[in-house]
């Protein structure tokens, strides 16, 4: 057991690019999802619900709950927990069902 406690714990991956969230840059590392990068940047919600306007962000993290829907590059209802972060993406808070129906 003692060998294990000496193993360096893996830190979060170093960010190598940024994308935009509501106009501000968010750092991201290769392989991270949009949700993870937002989370690492301290963002906890990126949409509001259509009935009560409540803030929502991540819930199940694996793409089944659809709570994490966000608008990316003008496309509504993208699951942030599945979408790989890409340099230059424009991610915007989705209000209700979003624009451009």
């Amino acid at each position: 057991m003692s060998g294990r406690s000496r193993r360096r714990r893996p830190g979060p991956p170093a960010p190598t690019f940024t994308f935009q969230f509501d106009g501000r840059p968010v750092p991201a590392a290769p392989g991270q999802t949009v949700a993870a990068a937002l989370w690492a940047a301290g963002v906890r919600s990126w949409r509001t619900t259509r009935v009560t306007g409540a803030p929502r962000g991540l819930f199940c993290g694996i793409g089944v709950c659809f709570d994490c829907l966000v608008t990316i590059d003008g496309t509504r209802n993208v699951r942030a927990c599945l979408a790989p972060a890409r340099a230059g993406m424009r991610v915007t808070t989705q209000v209700g069902v979003g624009d451009d129906v």
Binding site: R50, V51, N77, G96, V97, V101
Partner: peptide
């Protein structure tokens, strides 16, 4: 379909 509007928005 998915919901396309909130309660107070015009229906498409």
């Amino acid at each position: 379909t998915e919901p396309l509007r909130g309660a107070r928005e015009p229906a498409p």
